[in-house]
C-alpha cells in the first residue's frame, strides 16, 4: 500500500529565521513527503499537539537563536509524556559542537548545522523513520 512519510516542520520559540526551515520543507516535499509547516513562534505544546493530530512520522525543529538546549528538549520531553516515542525528531540551526551529543541523548536523533545538504536530511529521515 502507498505509504507517505509525514513530517512536521516546526519553529519553536521566538526566532524568526525561517530560511532553513522553508528550504528543508521544500526539499522534503520534493522527496515525496507530506510536510506540514507550523509557521513561527510555536510553544512545545502546540508542536506536540499538532504532531499528534497530523500523525506525523517525523518532527523537524529549526532554531537559530541558540535556545535549542531548552526548547528542543521541551518538545522531546512532551512527546514522550504523550506516548509519542515512535516519532523521529530531528533538529537544525546554529548548534555548537558540544551541544549535539547532549541533544542526541535527549532524543533529537539527528542534528544538522549550517552547510548541511538537504539530501542528507532526506536520507537520514528515510533511514531512521520508525514506522
Amino acid at each position: 500500500m502507498e505509504r507517505k512519510i509525514r513530517v512536521l516542520v516546526a519553529k519553536p520559540g521566538l526566532d524568526g529565521h525561517d530560511r532553513g526551515a522553508k528550504i528543508v520543507a521544500r526539499a522534503l516535499r520534493d522527496a515525496g513527503m507530506e510536510v506540514i509547516y507550523t509557521g513561527l513562534h510555536q510553544t512545545a505544546e502546540m508542536i506536540v499537539d499538532t504532531a499528534i493530530q497530523e500523525d506525523v512520522d517525523v518532527v523537524g525543529l529549526s532554531l537559530l537563536s541558540g535556545a535549542h538546549m531548552t526548547l528542543f528538549i521541551d518538545v522531546t520531553k512532551l512527546l514522550k509524556e504523550k506516548g509519542m516515542e515512535d516519532v523521529l525528531v530531528v533538529g537544525g540551526g546554529i548548534i555548537p559542537e558540544d551541544d549535539a551529543p547532549k541533544l542526541k541523548k535527549a532524543g533529537i536523533a539527528g542534528v544538522f548545522g549550517p552547510g548541511t545538504h538537504c539530501d542528507d536530511i532526506v536520507e537520514f529521515i528515510k533511514k531512521n523513520v520508525k514506522r
Binding site: R29, V35, G39, E45, M46
Partner: peptide, 19 residues
C-alpha cells in the same frame, strides 16, 4: 504531481487552536 509530496501550510493561521 512531480514528487508526490506536498507542503501543507494551512495550519499556520490556526496554530492558536492547536492546543
Amino acid at each position: 504531481p512531480f514528487s508526490g509530496g506536498a507542503l501543507l501550510g494551512d495550519r499556520i493561521r490556526m496554530m492558536e487552536l492547536a492546543t
